[in-house]
Design a protein around this nucleic acid. Structure first.
Lengths: 196, 196
DNA sequence: ACAGGATTCCTAGCGGTGCTAGCATGTGAG
DNA sequence: CTCACATGCTAGCACCGCTAGGAATCCTGT
């Protein structure tokens, strides 16, 4: 029994190493470089070991994406609370918007795993994992004071779409990144008309 | 010489068939189903024939994407001119926004080729193909009257990002499609505040 | 009309992918 | 100490994008 817990612990550590290695590899060389063979070599085990932890490569990417959602939510919370103390509702919205696009730009592989791959995560489902809704909740709290007569949830979704569009179009080179700040300012301005 | 032109014509027809087949296959079963073997079988030639027309699969996807840009530009032009005659600048913006997201929803494979794959097309380059700027030009003309003191180009980019974000997040299931109309209305409302 | 050269197109294969069957090896219980 | 079980390996499957090399076909110059 005592040895049983040790093996469980070692197994959990190995699983954590798989996810961490996949993430590091993706952030360093992109998801195309994350192959099951390469990943197995990095953790110094054979390929089939991966499949004793995850159902497949997609599940590994989902695990990485889940980490991303946790970190993004944390970043948004920090940004919003800091700006709320310093400025008004507009500053809070600008702060979360900035934090969001910074996250997307600085961790592109993580953002890809969260929002362009790994569709198996259920988003709109109220029964879905909390981690998926935490980040949205931060956006919601920043948008809500500015909703006026509009539905805060739907308005937040729309604002989020704006951020996501900026992040993806700039990342892929469809929009030149040099004007990012101005676009962000315009987007925030359209959702938070006046004050500070 | 006469036979030479015939062979050129036949070759052009075959190239067109490759692009058309790739597009049909992608629209029917997604881009994952478009393999070079499958594509070669559909056009009843061997695999290497594809490489005598295109440098690789990515080039074929780029050709499909180019068709998509032409069609999207045409749709936006039609929508804008129709709405401009009937309503005001707000109606024109709403019309192009509707046309854009309809296109993305009805031709997801085409939209993917244009905006999530095929990065070899140069977007921000002023020397780039006209077809890439035609669609943006339609958006620009719809946004421009509403710019106020803001830069119309940057504002259009921001509005485009909103449309792109809605299209991609709804398509991947990150946002439930049932609320699409309300989101679109909110987005348009934030860029075209009042009048009709 | 016909030989020769260029062009066209196919078969076969390379190195890679995600994934899995089947067999050793090592572990813990009776 | 034996034996069943769990663990992790080797080897391989079917598929991917892509290409080398040879056969067949077509056009041209004499």
């Amino acid at each position: 029994m005592a040895t049983g817990t040790r093996r469980e612990r070692e197994r959990a550590q190995r699983e954590e190493m798989i996810v961490r290695t996949a993430r590091e590899l993706a952030e360093a060389e992109g998801w195309d470089a994350v192959t099951t063979r390469r990943l197995a070599a990095e953790i110094e085990y054979s390929q089939p070991v991966l499949y004793s932890h995850f159902t497949g490569k997609a599940a590994i990417m989902t695990a990485v994406a889940t980490q991303g959602f946790e970190e993004l939510a944390q970043l948004l919370r920090t940004a919003r609370s800091a700006a709320r103390d310093a400025g008004g509702v507009r500053a809070a919205l600008a702060a979360v918007a900035r934090a969001y696009t910074d996250f997307a730009q600085e961790r592109p592989a993580l953002y890809d795993a969260m929002f362009t791959h790994a569709v198996e995560l259920r988003f709109a489902d109220p029964e879905g994992p909390d981690v998926l809704r935490a980040g949205f909740g931060e956006l919601l709290q920043a948008v809500e004071p500015l909703a006026g007569g509009d539905d805060p949830g739907v308005l937040t979704e729309t604002f989020w779409a704006g951020l996501h569009g900026l992040a993806t179009l700039e990342r892929s080179g469809r929009l030149p990144g040099s004007l990012h700040d101005r676009r962000l300012e315009l987007l925030v301005g359209r959702f938070a008309p006046a004050d500070g």
